[in-house]
Design a protein around this nucleic acid. Structure first.
Lengths: 226, 226
DNA sequence: TACAAAATTCTCAGATATTGATAATTATGT
DNA sequence: ACATAATTATCAATATCTGAGAATTTTGTA
């Protein structure tokens, strides 16, 4: 990091004292307890997480407990998982867990957020990321990209199969605040755990859950991440 | 905070850019996504949490799913809950959740950590906190205090009833690294959810779980928080 | 749409904290 | 017990931060 020995010792010492680093014999340093503490305050203070927790639990109750419900929030040029509710039955853990940030173009959550952004913003994002989009999605042109997202917007949900992790399905629906998409609610589960013909019911349940969150958000008028 | 308007705007702006604050219309600011991200890294990087997660799940399996297992780590003059595993059956949520720091004198986790500290350190803590100890515990003298802790050390576990939250029982056992107590594993549940005569079995299971974590820690030689 | 007031950002000289070389001290391994 | 490495302390030089005030943008109201 191009700092002197003095500064290195001093800075690490300061970070330890402030609780951001934690010395561990044999393992050097790990991140400190301050993050655990502030993380709790974050969970507690975020009105979006508060609004979404119960609808997410209900989503699992109405579909399957062999799944995880995640809430992903738009954050700059990523979509970050900010909350998750585990189903009660044992099931594989989700790679897309709380604290992971995904590129805007991968995963059902990202796609449903993108699909519901206003047209101008979307075009700008496409132009700024044309190369990455070509690399990580099947869309080779603006037209194809826009078509795919329009279909998602029409359907009210996005579904991806094996895009984030092999054999796993993600179904996501958008959460709105003041007509702007701010987050996505998703159901993540193994392809094997979807009973025949149930997939559309599951998608419907995800849409309902997301709408419920939007509704809640609407009546509390304090949610739009600027 | 005794800073000028200029600095206030500048600092808040910087914190937002760094992801530590998140502006929300109508709600001012909430803590930012950086904490969620770093919290995940903390969970991922902390060898103690890694060692304890599975034994904690087994503890619930062997006792009751109507409970929460928590891992509390000594941190300065508090004991902080750094990990929790929820039982699968519905049960009241625990006030002592991840990210909460407890005084050293309240709760089963704190007591079991105290009880297993080395004698000299303990005496120092008693002398430094005599007033607080008188206020928040029943121990009126060093002798009474020491007796109570010695009993806990002998038993291998601490049990509190209604000390952290009304009607809730906590049972905690110590985790050691290099012969020093570094954490406590606890089972938290409602008094109503303990079947008659099972409480001793539960305590035994908690001791086993904590020993298992210590064992794991012993063989990885990189755990002692300095 | 126009206006006034409030909120926010920008600018820059002065105040302040940070930096790193060096010395002093403490830990570690043999 | 010793040599060596690791860590902390000291202090002048220097880069960064601060806040007053000007400039700009946003907001509320008519």
């Amino acid at each position: 990091m191009a700092v002197s020995t003095s500064s290195a010792y001093r800075d690490v010492q300061d970070l330890c004292r402030a609780g951001f680093l934690n010395p561990v014999t044999g393992a050097g340093y790990i991140l400190g307890p301050a993050f655990i503490e502030y993380d709790r305050l974050t969970r507690q203070g975020d009105p979006l997480i508060q609004a979404a927790a119960e609808p997410m639990r209900q989503l699992l109750a109405r579909t399957t407990q062999k799944a995880t419900a995640i809430l992903c929030r738009r954050y700059r040029d990523t979509v970050m998982c900010v909350h998750q509710e585990q189903g009660r039955s044992p099931h594989p853990i989700t790679a897309y867990e709380r604290g992971i940030a995904m590129p805007l173009f991968i995963g059902a959550s990202s796609k449903v957020v993108l699909a519901n952004m206003e047209a101008r913003a979307l075009k700008r994002i496409y132009l700024d990321n044309e190369d990455e989009i070509r690399r990580s999605t099947r869309a080779a042109t603006w037209k194809a990209f826009n078509e795919e997202l329009r279909a998602i917007r029409r359907a009210g949900h996005a579904m991806t199969i094996g895009e984030v992790a092999a054999g796993r399905i993600g179904i996501a629906a958008p959460v709105f605040a003041a007509k702007q998409v701010v987050a996505g609610v998703s159901l993540v589960l193994s392809a094997d755990d979807v009973p025949d013909g149930k997939i559309e019911d599951f998608a419907h349940a995800v849409r309902d859950a997301a709408e419920e969150v939007s509704e809640y958000v609407l009546h509390s008028d304090m949610f739009i991440s600027r």
